[in-house]
Design a protein around this nucleic acid. Structure first.
Length: 922
DNA sequence: CCAAGCGCGTA
DNA sequence: GTACGCGCTTGGG
């Protein structure tokens, strides 16, 4: 008969290990409760419970008091920093969970968990039990015997490694019982165990292998050949023996260990459920139920049915069908035609819709059941030739399925549908009734999370999908997809469709539970086809103009560079901040300003302050401007022109910004220059598609200030907008107490900075650096501002207060951003989030507004079959490639839709311009 | 080849 | 003071 199993856990050490494992990106709940340590602790515990069914289980904690080791050696653990602030609540959580798991806790004043565990496992051994000690600490190896093993966390947080005699010998090269002798020589810096200075693992292991214990080493000290080692050993004999003593785990501490109390028993599921919900450990809870539900010991005690219902699905329980003959294809079309909604997912050999080939499409209409159609990109290409199963020619697929995708009565659901819609558009299929996107649903629920399917499946379904790398290797060459066996590809793709369907149901429920579904259904989902269309259209670039500019800039840059080298007295790389620092601050001895991690700052602001000190500064600033324009714009943009269309097709990232804004990548067309004259030339190169078109630009005027005015309902501010005043001028008049007509350009500039500052959650310090005025003066301006616009201050305070209560900031449309650090004890961290709490509702509401306008404008253009296309969005501006014949008609339509998309309590104004290029359209 | 750090373009 | 993405250098592989 098998021996009974006893498991004992070093809770504190496990928690610490996990805490630091996640230190670069700590886990926390949406509301900001830190959870790294709890999560790591639970993962390890559950992993062990899953693999081994303990009959007895207990937990050991370190005592708070000093231990006998401290008395032996003052420096013991002296370099340990105090417990991190956010560790404290996590230990409380761990204790809560342990209590609910009905596991006894052992703490003994004056002893560490090591000693309790040592004593417990030795007692277990005498009673004939097998033991497993869970701990990250390798000191424990000394306890290992045939009956006692150690479990340590591996490299990834859900990996566990079991150390038995063999494993220790394999890894360290000596038997576990010599661990203390090893530590005696090598020491342990984390516990301040000194060891023998100068002896590391490389020296220690052979010594241990030859002599075993340190006693034996010193008895045979003459046999050590290397004089240097012998010397070190002799000189530090005392340290060695002290170290051994410190490293030795006591196995006979005065502890009455009662195995009866440690019997593995049924936990308090209700409390655990509550705790796990609060900690947002959805998948861990499923796992817990699974483990306890499957446990032989507990099965009889539990309502197994109720539990398995909540456990996530298992892989072999599904029905995935490869569809590659006429009959099955027709069946599938019929089935989809009769469905009210379906998930689809395309498999391709790349990421850019313009360049890829379609390799297959999967469908799902209900959980666990999915279909996959392998596709040949062209007739008889034989791309799937290495498989004995045949694929469907693309023409065949399109002929049969086009009407299903284009059927307006059937809802389409995707993970990142913008991509799939684009892929099908290139097959002349126009997806209609795009209804739900799991990626965007996740973004709406919490924009700061990851939204890829693997993470969503893990988080919401406790499921790990087949990784793509299993199919095409870790080299991530997507063209390999045609080398994958069709059956394998089928299972992978069908699983993706299936999971997307399950995520759809789950996320839909979450959205409604959080009462946030309007943001998803009114804004994000309908925006998908709009953005897809904009990306498809792209915008034309005047390549020749850019290339000419590149040449001009090249000359300028060369001139500046030569002059800089002259003034510096040597040639160097001006692009290198490191080298520039040496020149400016060491060679030329200019005064230093702001510091960065790597030295003194050389950014534009710092250089501005040095202007008078040396004529090199101006030239460097000029060089920088030219170099930036050349490398980022005139040199790069022509490379991004799609050869097939002759236009640039950016990609709008709908999940990139936590405020709700879009971002633009490959290339970023939301940061095309406009401020400087040189920069304006680049904007001129953005042109209409042909002679029959013009660029039309429509932008919101002062939208963020209007939104703030509307939220806080400040009478002065509202009146200024209602009367159509120049808001910066009015602000200046009020703040500087002059008549509007007496406002100087400098006063207006300052007022403008104040207005922007307010939107960002300004402080006197920020305004000081921005305006270059004394902080006291900045404070006066701000004070006057708040006295004038009384409700603005209230709005700022309310925003922070509301965010602190709810744990998130929100827009007028209900879009959320969680602010987990807004109650932090760290002032810098907290104040940052307080400013975010002010800014996000404003920036985010503006984003909601323009998104709503985009959807309406796009639909209008489609419905009336206009030739004019919307092509870019730059946060408060929409850019159109407008057909000349439609411009007069469209101008008022676009203006009206933008102004009425989301009414405020003050007027919303959109200005429209038309021109031969993007610059002239302003 | 990759990540971090810096600097800088936009709203 | 908010929100982004990208080019370049550097230092590590």
């Amino acid at each position: 008969m098998k021996n009974k199993l006893f498991v004992i856990i070093d809770a504190m050490a496990l928690a610490y290990k996990a805490y630091f494992a996640f230190i670069s990106r700590p886990l926390s709940t949406k509301k900001g409760e830190p959870t790294s340590a709890v999560y790591g602790f639970m993962t390890q515990l559950l992993k062990v419970l899953e693999n081994h069914k303990p009959d007895y289980i207990a937990v050991a904690f370190d005592s708070k008091e000093k231990t006998f080791r401290h008395e032996k050696y003052e420096a013991y653990k002296s370099s340990r920093e105090e417990m991190p602030e956010d560790m404290v609540p996590q230990l409380e959580r761990i204790k809560q969970i342990i209590a609910s798991l009905k596991m006894p806790v052992y703490i003994l004043p004056g002893y560490e968990a090591d000693d309790i565990i040592g004593t417990a496992v030795k007692k277990a051994e005498k009673l004939g039990l097998e033991s497993l000690a869970i701990t990250p600490d390798k000191d424990y190896f000394q306890l290992i015997t045939d009956k006692i093993k150690i479990v340590r966390p591996g490299k990834s947080n859900d990996e566990v490694i079991i150390y038995d005699k063999k494993k220790v010998i394999d890894e360290l090269g000596f038997e576990p019982k010599y661990m203390i002798d090893y530590l005696a020589l090598v020491g342990d810096s984390s516990d301040d165990i000194p060891g023998v200075p100068g002896i590391g693992p490389k020296t220690a292991v052979p010594l241990i292998q030859q002599f075993g214990t340190i006693e034996n080493i010193y008895n045979n000290i003459d046999k050590i050949e290397k004089e240097s080692i012998r010397k070190k050993l002799i000189e530090n004999k005392e340290k060695a023996f002290l170290s051994k003593e410190l490293a030795t785990i006591h196995t006979e501490v005065p502890l009455d260990f009662d195995f009866e109390k440690a019997k593995f028993e049924k936990p308090d599921f209700e409390t655990l459920r509550q705790i796990f919900i609060e900690l947002e450990f959805k998948s861990l809870y499923s796992k817990l139920l699974e483990i306890y539900g499957n446990s032989e010991i507990l099965k009889t005690n539990l309502e197994v049915e109720k539990i398995t219902e909540q456990v996530s699905f298992v892989k072999d329980d599904v029905d995935y069908k490869l569809v590659n003959n006429q009959n099955d294809l027709d069946e599938l079309v019929k089935h989809l035609k009769n469905s009210k909604e379906f998930v689809f997912d395309t498999e391709t050999d790349g990421l850019k819709p313009f360049e890829i080939k379609l390799a297959g499409v999967s469908f799902c209409t209900e959980p666990k059941k999915a279909f996959f159609i392998p596709i040949e990109p062209h007739e008889n290409t034989g791309l799937f030739s290495n498989s004995d199963r045949k694929a469907i020619p693309i023409s065949e697929f399109v002929k049969k399925f086009k009407s299903v995708f284009e059927d307006k009565s059937i809802r389409k659901i995707c993970q990142n549908g913008k991509y799939d819609i684009a892929v099908l558009r290139h097959q002349n299929i126009s997806v209609k009734n795009f209804y739900f996107d799991t990626m965007l649903a996740s973004y709406v629920l919490d924009p700061d999370q990851k939204h890829n399917m693997d993470d969503l499946a893990q988080k919401y379904l406790n499921y790990k999908p087949i990784p793509l790398s299993d199919l095409i290797g870790t080299k991530q060459d997507p063209t390999k997809i045609f080398d994958v066996d069709i059956k394998v590809l089928s299972n992978y793709s069908a699983e993706d469709a299936d999971i997307t369907f399950r995520l759809y149901k789950k996320l839909d429920e979450e959205l409604k539970k959080e009462k946030i579904e309007k943001v998803a259904y009114d804004i994000e989902f309908p925006l998908v086809p709009v953005l897809e269309s904009m990306e498809f259209e792209g915008i034309k670039i005047d390549t020749e103009a850019l290339q000419q500019q590149s040449k001009d800039l090249e000359l300028l840059m060369e001139n500046y560079a030569q002059r800089i080298y002259q003034l510096a007295g040597k040639e160097f790389n001006i692009n290198s901040t490191k080298q520039l620092q040496e020149i400016l601050f060491e060679k030329l001895k200019l005064s230093t300003g702001r510091k960065t991690k790597t030295g003194f700052s050389t950014d534009a602001r710092s250089l501005e302050n040095l202007r008078g000190e040396h004529e090199i500064i101006d030239i460097i600033l000029n060089y920088r401007q030219v170099a930036k324009l050349k490398s980022t714009y005139t040199d790069s943009l022509p490379n991004l022109i799609n050869p097939k269309t002759g236009r640039i097709h950016t990609s709008f990232n709908q999940t990139g910004a936590s405020t709700g804004r879009l971002s633009s990548i490959d290339p970023n067309l939301q940061n095309i220059p406009i401020r400087t004259d040189l920069g304006k030339e680049i904007r001129k190169a953005f042109i209409p598609r042909d002679r029959n078109h013009l660029i039309l630009s429509a932008d919101y005027s002062q939208i963020e200030l209007r939104i703030m005015a509307s939220i806080c309902e400040d009478e002065t501010l509202m009146k200024a907008f209602i009367n159509g005043e120049d808001i910066h001028r009015s602000t200046a008049a009020l703040v500087f107490n002059v008549k509007p007509e007496d406002v100087t350009p400098d006063m207006r500039r300052k007022a403008k900075e104040v207005n922007f500052g307010i939107l960002y959650g300004i402080g006197p310090f920020g305004l000081k650096t921005r305006l270059g005025i004394p902080q006291t003066h900045a404070k006066e301006i701000i004070d006057t501002y708040f006295r004038t616009f009384k409700k603005v201050k209230d709005f700022m305070d309310d925003s922070i207060l509301k965010a602190k209560e709810k744990g998130y900031a929100e827009t007028l449309y209900g879009r959320r951003r969680y602010l987990k650090n807004i109650n932090s004890n760290n002032r810098v961290v907290r104040q940052f989030e307080e400013r975010v709490a002010i800014n996000m509702p404003i920036q985010g509401t503006a984003a909601d507004m323009i998104k709503l306008a985009m959807i309406k404008i796009h639909n209008e253009l489609e419905k009336k079959k206009y030739k004019t296309k919307m092509v870019l969005q730059v946060h408060d501006e929409l850019v159109f490639d407008a057909h000349k014949s439609e411009i007069d008609e469209l101008k008022p339509i676009i203006k009206k839709i933008m102004e009425e998309a989301f009414p405020l309590k003050v007027p919303v104004v959109a200005d429209i311009g038309v021109g031969e290029n993007w610059l002239d359209a302003h």
